[in-house]
């Protein structure tokens, strides 16, 4: 049954501010932007280095960490939910707020759906159940409505949630 192991094949990614990072094809496949490089005829896995001018080494390694963890955790059946939740929480904790936004942009540039979905959810969680005032302050948004305009907008959809119990 002895089979010659397949030659080690990794994809070389070069972030804008650091050394080349090698990723497995399985991880690279989840980055749509990288995938389109790989599918290009001129791509040679052993020598081609894919430059990523919009992504820092920190962002790239965070994204790879996330993908690695989540693709491995699928294989292990026990307590997946618990440990995944813990990993996700830790993952976000390590991100200062500014870095969260930048990482969102990096994930968007690399077009890696799993990370993008996760980060969008994380930002949405910051907004959910907060007051308008809080959201403005939190995101540094300046209120450009007049008092009357704001009141109008507030009233527009109020009918839909009247009489519904607050959670």
């Amino acid at each position: 049954m002895a089979k010659t192991p397949e030659p080690k094949r990794t994809i070389s990614l070069k972030p804008c501010d650091g050394d080349v990072i090698e990723v497995s094809p399985m991880i690279a496949k989840q980055m749509q932007t990288i995938q389109s490089f790989i599918e290009d005829d001129s791509f040679i896995a052993t020598t081609t280095i894919i430059p990523l001018p919009n992504v820092t080494a920190f962002q790239l390694s965070k994204i790879i960490d996330y993908l690695n963890y989540h693709s491995n955790s699928k294989a292990v059946a026990d307590n997946v939910k618990e440990s995944t939740k813990k990993f996700d929480e830790e993952f976000l904790k390590e991100l200062e707020h500014d870095k969260l936004k930048e990482l969102l942009h990096a994930a968007n540039y690399l077009n890696v759906k799993e990370v993008l979905d996760f980060l969008c959810q994380a930002v949405a969680d910051l907004i959910q159940d907060k007051s308008v005032k809080f959201v403005r302050k939190f995101f540094g948004v300046v209120n450009d409505y007049s008092v009357e305009e704001e009141e109008d907008i507030r009233r527009t959809h109020a009918w839909a949630f009247e009489g519904v119990e607050e959670d």
Partner: peptide, 21 residues
């Protein structure tokens, strides 16, 4: 826009449009 799609209906219709234009 993508982030807004992760919010509840109530949040999308009451909080978000009030934040700014």
């Amino acid at each position: 826009g993508e982030i807004f799609t992760y919010l509840s209906l109530q949040e999308r219709l009451t909080t978000v449009p009030c934040v700014c234009k």
